[in-house]
Design a protein around this nucleic acid. Structure first.
Lengths: 247, 247
DNA sequence: GGTGTCGATATGTCTATACATATTCCCGTC
DNA sequence: GACGGGAATATGTATAGACATATCGACACC
């Protein structure tokens, strides 16, 4: 009996490696709806027969699909196409200095306020720490080509980032310094809209009542709060872009 | 000679599988700065000796780290720690109906306008299509517990999504229908802040001049435009949350 | 009927080996 | 010294086989 498998067809199609072709083949069937959500994908031993390869090879393809959340693998039960995933996107928020200079615009940084103090009750609540400790409170402004770009209001948890005590934030923006010196493991962004009050309007050189985009970011390392920052951007001038690419 | 490896140490520490422990161990060294960006990670054959396992096992750990963009692997040269990645987060924007009902609030949907037409020049520009074709234009409003939650203004490219012609958008919100029926591969979100004009204020039951958060989303399948939507939320009432967790 | 145990089964991990492929390095030639 | 070609080497892919682990289902027992 001739053992004709789909492997020949796939190999003929293109050049890349076998496991990648298997991955793409299954991906295609899912994206076109041929295998709808909930559908049970053939067992690994069936796929080895279909593609004429070893179990490790199809397993590698399935592992990557599972990592991408396209399928779900359950022992003893089999492998299933997942319900459509949430609409999600990778929101990239680069360091502001890098963002501005990358656009070829001149960057200007102004430290408005910088103080080191024992954490107040409000500081602890904002950072999410229980014990009392020391913090650095910073307010500053970023400008691009002389035009205010964003204002920043930040707290740094000195107990978690003691080396921040010796950083000079009058020269280097705290976000830039932190990004280059402090590794982090978790971050949370909360995005909202406000209208400028008198202080924000003055700092951003816009009208009182103009719309502003606000990003509140908290950063942790291994569940330990590192810093909390609020960035206020002129609303219509700035856009956050988030992209998602499947595959 | 006794062949003592780090494997015993790792195995003692916890329970999970060996390759995962190797992955976590390397990840830790990178995150703590012990292995800074640009540092060459020991060769696979050195890691097999260090952890006392086969090359396939360390390779699996390295593959996952490479997929997560923490390291870069180059043939003949070795494996290197990557430059610090951008501050990025996964922004999850679920279906609005699901988002509201998940909070235990009652969902109410109102179709304001729905028309099928040949694409105008403005439609084509907004969708990013060149050829003329048919589109569906929809305006609607989402409410939670009777309070306006967001207004939506959407175009659907009927050439790419012909089955949308037979959907009844007076019952099911278009976002929900699309999410359940149309697979997508790329999406782009642009987030900004505006103040409510008279129309938005009336639709959202807020004051003219109140801040609003705006999300413009474009969705493609294999580079083919599917839909373009603008969502306007009352700005201070709603927050978008984006999280990142390393590992 | 409810419960618990046990076997069957599909995925998960790991090994040892082999060959492919990309890239660097070095050496010999012009 | 510049250039070209081949050896050395580190990663990339694939195989067959083995054992681990989770879980569904069936059967036995209370």
């Amino acid at each position: 009996m001739s053992l004709s498998t789909d492997r020949d067809k796939l190999q003929a199609a293109d050049k890349p490696t076998l496991y990648k072709q298997i991955r793409l083949d299954i991906e295609r069937r899912i994206l076109t709806g041929e295998w709808p959500p909930g559908h049970r994908i053939p067992f690994e031993h069936e796929l080895t027969a279909r593609y004429g390869c070893s179990r490790m090879t199809v397993s590698k393809a399935l592992s990557e699909l599972a990592q991408a959340d396209l399928i779900e693998r359950r022992r003893r039960a089999g492998t299933f196409v997942r319900r459509p995933k949430f609409l999600s996107a990778v929101l990239t928020i680069p360091d502001i200095r890098a963002e501005i200079t990358a656009l070829g615009r001149s960057y200007f940084y102004q430290l408005t306020q910088c103080s080191r103090r024992a954490a107040t009750a409000a500081d602890r609540a904002r950072l999410g720490v229980r014990k009392s400790g020391k913090v650095i409170a910073i307010a500053c402004r970023h400008s691009a080509d002389g035009v205010p770009f964003a204002i920043e209001d930040r707290l740094i948890n000195l107990d978690a980032v003691p080396e921040a005590a010796s950083a000079d934030f009058s020269i280097e923006p705290p976000g830039t310094w932190l990004l280059h010196h402090v590794p982090w493991t978790e971050a949370e962004h909360s995005i909202s809209a406000i209208v400028a009050d008198a202080a924000a309007a003055s700092a951003l050189d816009i009208a009182v009542g103009a719309p502003c985009l606000v990003i509140d970011r908290h950063t942790w390392r291994s569940a330990r709060p590192l810093t909390a920052v609020r960035l206020v951007y002129p609303g219509e001038a700035h856009k956050l872009v988030a992209r998602f690419k499947g595959g």
